[in-house]
Design a protein around this nucleic acid. Structure first.
Lengths: 267, 267
DNA sequence: TTGCTCCTCACGTCACGTGAGGTGGC
DNA sequence: TTGCTCCTCACGTCACGTGAGGTGGC
């Protein structure tokens, strides 16, 4: 039994000594982690060396990220039990550090609005579209589409965006996107939409010819139906003109026009 | 205005798509972070592509450790504002990682019971005492004393422990500690205590002679009064015998005997 | 019909923070 | 007397988790 001799610290002094807040000390009392000291005549808690030592040890464990519910048990642990627990705690710390490092990468890519939840390659692709003078509206439609694709097929998105990007080496693709941009502003009965539909059907035709009726990529490019439907809904929802354009394309014998995978000829 | 066309996902499907829990989605609605979608005839929420995209973006920020209260503002932010915020978020992440790395070090040293809140050098010192066959009780008194010292003078403790450790090169110091250990078990009136007091007084005498009345270290070795008083209380509280030994030493002309700093000759 | 999802309260979690209202110590 | 510390409730924080009790969809 340690005697009550020695300096008796107030809760504020004990807390300052151990480097914790007064409220934290009271909390440790409340949950039974730290024994309540005796009170003085005024009802103030008075701490002796033993209490302060226990408080320092509690803090050492708590600061290391050990939940208070485990601190109690570790304070009483043997060297072997403690060593085992320490291994586990260190594993947790390492995992947490790895998690944060990952987030640092994610955050770095998030430096631009486009980068929110998108890989750098997609953000670069969107910048390429911008460099062609395409409207913010167009960029947003593309970005949202690729967000959905990235969420449903995170492993494939980088390959797909590379293919998509390469297609912009052809000046007629760039030209088509500019027309598509204008088309989004049209009324559904604007004759310009027929012009764009013709241009797109022509592109599809040449695309199939170039690959001898054997376009690269499977007809199902790896996206589930839900995602494809959401992509369509997103693109079509932009304006009634887009909906009309889809109809005009079907009249010309083409369907399944979306951001990934080849179009399909209606047979 | 995006149309309500496209596949309408249930809350469970939308949550799974974005990689969050159903409860999290409801929570985002509750705090106004994510707009409530329309309901179907049964009162079920039905999500369209726009909702899912917003959900993915919320998740991207939240997972990076951004508090939800800031997520709302960042979703609407410009590229410049976002870049600024990202710098800050990354600073926070780096600080957090550094904090965890520190804790990994602390935890590594905590692998043994002695290491709880004590630097490795002190734990090594305690092991040295153990190798001399000193009792667990003695080790505990020493450990608690050094815990108090480490808490009040963390920068100096390594130097002090090195001095203390070096003193054990002298066989008579080791011999004295063994006697001190036995003395702790004594009744206060045991004549063995007088023997130990004589031995300690002799050690002090030779210590002063060796340094020509000019012992190293200031009379006040850098510890505040509170700590010194707690150290005394801790050591004296162990047993009445220790208290008696202190008295016997005073009779022999010595005071201020504790773990750090030189003893003082009563003038 | 069974099992799964959906709904809305509403309390629980974790480690304290933060007043609210009052008293003691220098 | 003033300002600071101490006391005990007790609600607030943060981002949901977890039943409780009930209904809808395949």
């Amino acid at each position: 039994m340690a005697s009550a001799r020695g300096p008796l610290l107030t809760i504020g002094q004990a807390a300052a000594y151990a480097g914790v807040t007064v409220r934290a000390v009271r909390h440790y009392h409340q949950i039974g982690l730290l024994a309540e000291p005796d009170r003085d005549a005024s009802g103030y808690r008075r701490y002796n060396a033993g209490h302060v030592i226990e408080l320092i040890r509690i803090r050492a464990l708590a600061e290391a990220g050990v939940p208070l519910s485990r601190v109690a048990e570790l304070l009483k642990a043997s060297d072997e039990d403690l060593a085992e627990a320490v291994t586990e705690i260190d594993d947790n710390l390492q995992a947490e550090i790895a998690r944060l490092e990952e987030h640092r990468h994610a955050v770095a890519q998030l430096a631009t609005v486009d980068g929110l939840a998108l890989p750098q390659e997609v953000a670069d692709y969107l910048d390429l579209l911008r460099s062609f003078g395409l409207s913010d509206r167009m960029i947003r439609v593309e970005r949202d589409g690729w967000l959905l694709i990235a969420a449903s097929a995170p492993d494939a998105v980088v390959d797909w965006i590379a293919e998509k990007r390469a297609s912009f080496d052809q000046p007629e693709i760039v030209d088509f996107y500019r027309n598509l941009d204008k088309a989004m502003e049209c009324e559904p009965d604007d004759p310009f939409l027929e012009e764009v539909a013709d241009q797109l059907a022509d592109l599809f035709e040449r695309y199939y010819e170039a690959f001898n009726q054997e376009p690269p990529g499977a007809p199902e490019p790896g996206l589930d139906e839900t995602t494809v439907a959401m992509l369509d809904a997103g693109a079509m929802g932009v304006s009634p003109a887009m909906h009309r354009l889809e109809q005009l394309l079907q009249e010309r014998g083409w369907t399944n026009w979306n951001d990934v995978g080849p179009p399909q000829r209606i047979t």
